[in-house]
Amino acid sequence: MIRSLWTAATGMKAQQLNIDTISNNLANVNTNGFKKSRVNFQDLMYQSLREAGTPNNQGSQVPAGIEVGHGVRPAATQKLFAQGSFQQTGNPLDMAIEGDGFFQVVRPNGQVGYTRDGSFKRDSNGRIVTSDGYPLASDITIPEDTTDVSITAEGRVMVKQPGNEEVTEVGQIELSRFSNPAGLKSIGRNLFAETPASGGPTVGVPAEDGFGTISQGYLEKGNVKVVEEMTNMIAAQRAYEVNSKAIKASDQMLQQANNLKR
């Protein structure tokens, strides 16, 4: 059987995953805090028909061997944590991280989730929560009679209440960062979970020890560039097409061999 049939098939399967990844990037172009993914590929094993350095009939060594590759495989889908653009909203509980760091929220199972989506709300108990009701790990509660909320670049949450000229600090937002954020696991709902590959979180205060600052009244949009993704999609589509043509050419070669007459 001609090797190219199976080799080209691996190329088609790899480009299908590439298109799937690009589609997910484009689908989340307006998702707050979304980080796009990129597929990394590796070539497969090679069959050596002649080793480099093999002695020839004249007693010298051949300078190059003969190797036939067996295709490609996806090696990883890597998250790219480049900063997304900011959108001003004016909402006092909208926050964007300018620089490194993740907001920490408590999931229903008690484990901590990490997110760059700063579109927070206030629940019936006054806690600062995500759109799904997951509270900040800092457990900050805003009093019911609050007339104004301000959040500093360092993450200090200040409120103003009736009859009090002074602002009152009700909590401190902390951020987490990882030595290998690409190793985080995407679990949906704009959340990541730590893994052995990401390492444990380092928790700190915004604007200190290399953590980013918090911008109140802004949201970080996804870092997907539509033109770039469309270009990647065209390239993937053409690669899929050319691999399908390689399969067709191999089939035609087999057909011609089958039609040979003595």
Rank of each mutant, 00 (worst) to 15 (best):
V242G: 13
G11C: 07
S198C: 09
N57H: 07
G90F: 05
S37G: 11
I66S: 07
F178E: 07
V105T: 06
S48Y: 12
R238C: 00
Y46M: 09
S131R: 14
V227P: 14
S119F: 08
F120N: 08
I2T: 10
P143Y: 06
N243L: 01
S23W: 12
D20W: 09
A246K: 08
P55R: 07
R127E: 13
G90V: 02
R38F: 13
D43K: 12
I187N: 12
Y46K: 10
S150H: 13
F178K: 10
T10K: 02
T7M: 03
E144M: 05
N164V: 12
Q61T: 11
S150A: 11
R38T: 15
A207E: 13
N243H: 02
A236C: 02
T77D: 07
V170D: 12
F81K: 00
R189E: 08
G113R: 01
L260R: 11
D209V: 00
D145L: 08
R127Q: 11
A239V: 03
K221N: 11
Y134L: 09
K261V: 11
R116I: 05
I22Q: 05
Y240F: 06
G171E: 01
A82E: 07
S138A: 12
Q61L: 14
D132E: 15
A182L: 08
A52C: 14
I66D: 07
T21M: 09
S124W: 10
P162Q: 00
I151Y: 06
A197E: 15
G222P: 05
N223F: 12
R3K: 11
G188I: 10
V226I: 15
A257C: 09
V29E: 04
N180K: 11
L191M: 06
F34S: 08
F120T: 08
R156D: 15
K36I: 10
N109F: 03
V149Q: 05
S37H: 05
E144I: 05
N32M: 13
Y114M: 03
V224Q: 11
S179F: 11
G133I: 14
M12W: 08
N18Y: 06
G53W: 11
M95W: 07
T146H: 07
N24H: 10
D117W: 09
K160L: 06
R122C: 03
G113W: 00
Q172R: 04
N232P: 00
A27G: 00
S215Y: 15
E154Y: 00
Q58D: 12
A76D: 15
L175Q: 04
A236R: 02
E98I: 00
Q88H: 13
S60P: 09
A153S: 14
P201Y: 07
P92G: 01
A75V: 05
L5M: 00
I140G: 04
S198R: 10
G65D: 06
A182H: 13
N232L: 02
Q61W: 14
S60I: 10
A235N: 13
V112K: 02
R107L: 09
K79R: 15
A9I: 02
T115W: 12
K221E: 13
G90D: 03
R116G: 03
F34N: 06
G110P: 03
A75P: 09
F102K: 01
V68Y: 09
P63Y: 10
S186G: 15
R50G: 01
T130Y: 02
Q88C: 14
